[in-house]
Design a protein around this nucleic acid. Sequence first.
DNA 1: TCTGGGGTCCTAGGACCC
DNA 2: TCTGGGGTCCTAGGACCC
Length: 385
Amino acid sequence: MKENSPVRRIAHLDMDAFFASVELLHYPELRGMPVVVGGRNVPVRQDLAGTERFARLRDYVGRGVVTTSTYEARAFGVFSGMGLMKSAQLAPDAILLPANFEAYRDYSRRFKAAVASVAPCIEDRGIDEIYIDLTAIPEPSLPLARRIKQAVLDATGLTCSIGITPNKLLSKICSDLDKPDGITILGMDEVPTRIWPLAARKINGIGPKATARLERMGIHTIGELAAAPRELLVRYFGATTGIWMHEVAHGIDERPVKTVRETKSVSRESTFQRDLHVQGDRAELSEIFTGICLRVAEDLQRKQLKAKTIGIKLRFADFRTVTRDVTLEQPTDDGATIRRAAGLCLKRIELSDRIRLLGVRGSALVSATAGSADAVALQAELPLG
DNA sequence: TCTGGGGTCCTAGGACCC
DNA sequence: TCTGGGGTCCTAGGACCC
């Protein structure tokens, strides 16, 4: 027996073309132009004036993907995740700017603080989006949404889009319906008219693979997914995913807004400018490997965490990816220890092909300060005074 | 000229213990 | 001697998200 839970009011807030919009604050002369953020070693020449000092997409050489694009660039078909070389074909004259993550993190903190001043129950979903539980706030949704947007604009100069519905699933879909600078408010009774016509891919958690499988079943829209027999979905996707799909297609999602979240893993990885040979580029590879391990160690120390499991990730030239990990007797945040453990993992991989990416991860994390049971026991044995 | 870097969650098999 | 099941940890891979 399930009790009737009271109707919640959940917002999803998504910053509009966040990274690109932050860049436009710094370079207002680029407003209205197709602008792309991404790549590495992308210069902005201070010795030139006007838009001449910016790189153009067509000039870019090397690896890299689009991190964000302005709406003007998206009109050319240039979206996040697309290879820069391919983007250059679609929009050769688009301005290319280097990513400035420090600035984005700063603006991220600012917009979240601004929202918190209006509605404090916030779940962090990354650098440019959050969920907000508005249930306890008496103010009606539309003026409340406007007030939140105004607070964000005042604090950052940036616009965002907000969806307000009874749950996270629907709010996430709705914040995207009226972008940019939009507000979409929706009740459960509107699911058939406003949600069911949308592509199944709009559901957070249904990605490219699931979409392709659904298409093969003749299911394209959320409405068609809702109409599919639950047993059919369970047969195709397994019990967990099948039942989940059936529920979300009906707009059902009971997940709470989580205001605290513990870190599960800490990792660093690097894609090389060119694919490296294990033998031919041994010295360079070894230096990169050690550097990555040291950065993981620094990250752990800064977060006051220690990792009990150390793992590595390798991507070969053909994009095949393999992982290996090892669990240590004692959790660690020491660079040399991590390097040793990662080296043992590396020995377990057959290295015949060239490598394009190397990564190191720490997981099974414990607090470095709270003191493990072992540490406490050890302390107890130390003579006092 | 394909395809970044930081994450989370799920599955599945084997080891090992009770 | 044979037969059984549950729980937890470890490892590898994959889907997905921002």
